[in-house]
Every structure is written in structure tokens, then in C-alpha cells.
Design a protein around this nucleic acid. Sequence first.
DNA 1: CACAGATTGACAGCACACTGTCAATCTGTC
DNA 2: GACAGATTGACAGTGTGCTGTCAATCTGTG
Lengths: 144, 144
Amino acid sequence: MDAWTRFAESIFRINGLLMQAGEGITRPLGQSSARWQVLGGVGYGPRTVADIAKSIGHARQSVQRVADALANEGLVVFRDKPDDKRTSLLELTPAGLKVLTAIYNRQVKWSARITRKLGAEQLDAQAAALIEIAKVIASDVDKP
Amino acid sequence: MDAWTRFAESIFRINGLLMQAGEGITRPLGQSSARWQVLGGVGYGPRTVADIAKSIGHARQSVQRVADALANEGLVVFRDKPDDKRTSLLELTPAGLKVLTAIYNRQVKWSARITRKLGAEQLDAQAAALIEIAKVIASDVDKP
DNA sequence: CACAGATTGACAGCACACTGTCAATCTGTC
DNA sequence: GACAGATTGACAGTGTGCTGTCAATCTGTG
């Protein structure tokens, strides 16, 4: 197994652990990582579904489905967007804000716990190195 | 945004790029990353579905579904396992071997291209660092 | 102002991973 | 050898993400 494969496997491993942690944070609150991302997208003010999709890098229709589910459960509401009759603004309800806040609190504790163990400097250095590697991979996409 | 979040986002970014590259490698051959993993699991000799699932860290039933699909398309066959009547051994057909070899060739080229740009030493160092971080995350799982 | 092209949500369908349940079968213990 | 517990595939159902198509609506160009 070559260095690149070892590297890729370490990424898969950490990604899996992060996803698992995300589930661990959201699940006790009856949510999920996908729902968290959408709720978080509305956290700083009303936005359209298409807007949120762009910002988190997911397909518009994936976000739409999650948003519809959240609206059904009363965590968000669709409000008319005055200047565009096609779409509407997604807005947190009090219940939605409560859930998002609870998730945020859990996330902060988790983040602080890990940062204490690993050190912000090391994490920043790793992140910077990974972003450089990401650029190289991205520039290679579609080559095979 | 704290260091830990920046780190997590860099992992998500690279993971996404790796998945994308995996699709790029397998898609022209009518396959996918999931199918690749299962084909690869049988590459060194017949194995059971449950066995493959364990080795790649996926749910048994997820692998079962992919294996059934591969069998339907004639890339693998189920052969009786003499000492266990519940299960069967999954084995590559000549067609399956052909596909797996083609995928392997594409993967090797891609891997070599990236390693040339980034250097095996850097990749190994990163992988080692990430594995250490993974241990810390893993030891924290279920804490929140 | 007209109109081509982009954007949007609704609808439909697919791939992949997970979970849980069930009956058949295997394994280890007594 | 009997029997409790683990393992296995079949079946069924869920969540998440993707794609494509369609009609309504917006936007920018001329």
C-alpha cells in the first residue's frame, strides 16, 4: 500500500469519526448532521433553500427535502419573499432556535474537549497543510 | 470559527474530493466506490459478505446489497461454502477480474500523479499525524 | 418592452449506508 | 448430545445525497 493510499485511509477514518461525533451530538436531540447544517444555515437570519445549498456545497434538492421535513416538524417556517414569487425565506421558529442552541452547546463542549487535548496550534497547522493538499487534489480532478 | 472547526472542515473538503476522485475512477467503467470496495474485498480470494463488511467497516447488509447487485451483473458469483450452510463465498468472475484490474490501473495512475506532486514523505507524515488525531477523537466518542 | 436564459420548488427516481426482525444454521458449553 | 447464544442472508423500512424534468418566475440584454 502506497503513501497516498495510507493518507486517503486516514482521511476516511477521521471523516467517519467526525460524522459519528456529529450524530452523537445531534441524535439525543432528535436531529441529525444534515438537519443541523440546515438549521445552522438559518441561524443568522432567514435565507432561501437554494442559498443554503450553495453555502454548504450540497445539491439544492437535498437541502429542500431536509427543509421540508424541518418545516413539517415546526422547527422552521417558510415565509414569503416579497421580491421573488418563486421562492420563500426559511426562518427558525422558537422551537427551532431552542434545538439549534442545544446542538450548539453540545458542539462547543465537544470542540473544547478535543482542542484541549490536541492544541489549537497543531489543529491549525494540520488544517493549513490539508487545505494545501486539497488544492492539489482539486487541480487533478477529472484527469483519470 | 475555532481551530477544531477549521480542521474538521478541511477534512470534509478532502474527503469530498477523494470521493469525487473515486467516482471519477470507477464511473467510466460503470462502477462506483461502493462496488469497488466489494470487488476489491474479493480480489485476493473468495470471502463471505459478512467478512468483507467487517474488513471495510460497513454494515453487513449494505455490503450484501452491493454484492447481490454485482452478482446480478455477473461480476461475482456466490459459491457454496462447504463448512457453513448459512453463507456462501463471493468470488470474482473473469468479467469481475477484468473490471477490478481496470479500476486498479486507473487508481495507480492517479495515485502516482498525486504522490509526484506532494511527495511520499509529506503524505506519510500527514497520515501519521492524522492517525494520532483519530485516536484522540475515537477515545472521545460517546462523551457528549 | 420583448424574450432568451437562469433560477426555483415540485415531483420522481436512483445509489448507498443504516437499522431492526426473522428463520436457518453454526459454535461453544455443559 | 442438548441447548443458549452468535452469525448469516432475506426482507422491510429510514435518512441522506444525487440526478433529471417541468412549469412558474425572475433577470439581463437588446
